[in-house]
């Protein structure tokens, strides 16, 4: 078994899902807070590419982005992950996000993409504004979602 870095946050697996949309795929994350919902979106994004269980969280990458409002921040966040996946040729298994005044800092733990082992099904081209929503329900739970172009 791979040993996870000591800096790994001890959190429950966030709740996320992918959903159908025409030629592409929607990603949705839930959380008690905005940051947790964004973390869950990250997992949903990885799962569009390959099965999460095939990815190990061995190396960390730092990401920073900012926007004027939460939906624009989600767009930035998803695109930041897409960019890191593309230029580092990595897949990410764990996300830790902090958001203060629409400024996001995040640590992403993952590993180098191995086509044989990960069998990536598709490459994500980018986030879209379609179905882009960040909201809090009556119970206070956050959800964040958008369609990604694949």
């Amino acid at each position: 078994m791979h040993r996870q870095p000591e800096t790994m946050p001890a959190i429950a697996e966030p709740h996320w899902e992918v959903y159908a949309h025409g030629a592409d795929v929607g990603i949705r994350g839930f959380g008690a807070g905005l940051a947790e919902a964004f973390e869950a979106v990250g997992l949903a994004l990885t799962s569009v590419v390959c099965e999460l269980s095939r990815v190990q969280a061995s190396h960390a990458v730092e990401v920073h982005c900012a926007a004027r409002e939460p939906e624009a921040l989600l767009f930035e966040w998803v695109n930041a992950i897409v960019y890191e996946m593309a230029i580092r040729r990595m897949l990410f298994r764990r996300y830790r996000v902090a958001i203060v005044d629409c400024e996001l800092t995040a640590s992403l733990w993952g590993e180098a993409l191995d086509p044989q082992r990960h069998e990536p099904a598709v490459e994500v081209k980018g986030a879209t504004y379609t179905d882009l929503r960040v909201q809090q329900d009556d119970s206070g739970r956050w959800s964040a979602q958008c369609i990604v172009d694949v």
Binding site: C50, E119, V122
Partner: peptide, 9 residues
């Protein structure tokens, strides 16, 4: 194809 899930999709 490098991905059987990709083929299914």
């Amino acid at each position: 194809s490098p991905s059987m899930r990709g083929v299914a999709e």
